[in-house]
Structure formats: C-alpha cells, structure tokens
Design a protein around this nucleic acid. Sequence first.
DNA 1: GCTTGATCCTCCAGCGACTGGAGGAGGCAT
DNA 2: ATGCCTCCTCCAGTCGCTGGAGGATCAAGC
Lengths: 144, 144
Amino acid sequence: MPLPSPASAGLRPIGKLAAATGVKVPTIRFYEEIGLLAVPPRTANDRRMYDDDAERRLSFIRHARQLGFDLDSIRSLLDLSDHPDRPCAEANAIAERHLADVKRKIAQLKALQGELSRMTAECAGGQVSACKVIEALHDHTASL
Amino acid sequence: MPLPSPASAGLRPIGKLAAATGVKVPTIRFYEEIGLLAVPPRTANDRRMYDDDAERRLSFIRHARQLGFDLDSIRSLLDLSDHPDRPCAEANAIAERHLADVKRKIAQLKALQGELSRMTAECAGGQVSACKVIEALHDHTASL
DNA sequence: GCTTGATCCTCCAGCGACTGGAGGAGGCAT
DNA sequence: ATGCCTCCTCCAGTCGCTGGAGGATCAAGC
C-alpha cells in the first residue's frame, strides 16, 4: 500500500485534471466558484484533489460548452443527468432551444456575409474617397 | 433671431441624437468615453449638444456595429473615413478580415447545428436515463 | 409663478465566461 | 539543498454595452 491517507484512490490535483480534460486551471476554479463543479476535498495544504467523478462532470461541462450551451443550461443539464428517473423532455427542450438559437445566429451571420462580400467585391482599390467599404458604412439605407 | 447663443445651428441634446440614430443614450456616452465619438460642446449646464456631423459619425458607427465590426476596427475605419486621400486598401483589409471571421463562425455554427440536430432527433422522450441528449454530452468521443 | 414629469448629469456595478497576473507557499526530483 | 513547477488566494481586465442611484435642470401646462 502506498500511503495511509484517507481513501486516496486515484485522486489528482487540479493541474492533472486540467490536462486530462482540456479545461484550464483557472476555469476549473471558476466553475467551482459559481457552483457548477462540486467543492473538492483538499489536502492538508489546501490543494484541491479530484476523483474520477469530478473528471466525468468536468468533461460533461466541457462538451456542453463546445456545443455552445451557456452555463445556466449546463447547470440544468447536469442536474437532469443526476436524476435519471426524471423525464428527458426538459433536456430536449434545452437542446432544442439552443438549436433554434444557433439557427438564428447562422441566418444572421449569413446576412452579414452577404453584405460584407458585396462591400469588399465592389472595392477597386483606389483611394478612400472612392472606397465602397467606407461608402457603404456611410450610407443610411443599410439593408439589415 | 431665436437666441444669441454662439452659432447654435441645429444642435440637439443627447436624447434627440439617440432617437435620430437608434443608439441608446448611455451607449453614446460610452462611445465618447472610449474616444470613438468626439467630445461634444456643452451648454452652460453641462448638457452635451450635437451637430449633424456628430450624427453622421454615430450613424457610421451604428452601421458598422450592425455589420459586426468590433470597436477597434470601427476606430480604424472612422480614421480612414477622415482621410479620403489615403488608399483604401486598409479599409478593404479590415472588411475582408471580418468577412473571413464571419465565414469561420458560420462554419462553426453549422457544425454545432448538425450535432444538436442529431442529438435532439434521436431523443424519443422517455426518461433521462435513456436520453440521447444527456448521453451525447457524457460521451467522450464528441465529434467536434 | 408653480408644479409635474421628462431629460440630463456623474458615478458605479453588473452581464457572460472566462483570463491572467501578483505575490507567496509548498512539493518533487536530482 | 537547490531549483523549478505547481498550487494557493485575490483581484483586475476582457468586450460592448446596460441599467440604476441620486441629483440637477428643462419645458410645458395651468
């Protein structure tokens, strides 16, 4: 047996957790601060020690963030994940709401893309006084 | 003649400017604070008074914001707009950089859209324990 | 002239989701 | 024992606003 510390199976410090999950150290502390991640046990010298469960939870958060969910939604999703007996309608609703958001943003960005393409395409590269980009921005009749 | 105030042709207070441009009053003050909008003259009682030029400048900023330019880019674009003799290459570069950014974001969001669609489509509406949404978030092999 | 309500002023805190730095203590490897 | 790495806390900054407190002033109606 390695050490007589209390049930220290596979505990790692915050840096290892960060490396394992791809979440930066300050971000992990931030998640703890806002109550998204449980307060972990500490060593005698105040170092946070994390188990596999914490890693799973953090990975969950990371995936959700990569998918663009905001932290409040993730809070709800984690809560649901902790209660497998509850109906999954709420999880679905959160995901679909987010999907609708994403679609809306795509539409918006495509409109921007169109505008910007037109602006840059028309610019022949002379002086600012003839610049279509600057002109378009001065134009009151912007089609947005 | 209306008033003997010094050359007060078409000056309006901040609220009128806000109404005319669609930019909120605190935002106008914010733009002034960060040096994007020139410090306007004040009345004896400290009220800011704006002329047509200020309105044109603010409209320019607003259009640029609607097109998604960040304030630093807008600062540069305004600067260029003030110097019609300069070549417009820089303006073009700013617009094209932004366009590339927009395209990148669209691609990213489309990937998200795909992921989210798949997740929600597969969910049959039972319990959380069988929820594809929650499952996908727990899954380590997220395809992003 | 007086009252009422709108507008203006300054200052400051907050949003979301982190990010990074200062300043210091502790741990690990040679 | 040396030296570097990691950890700790606290705090300020990012971006582009937004809104509120608390107070002064204006314009219009009566």
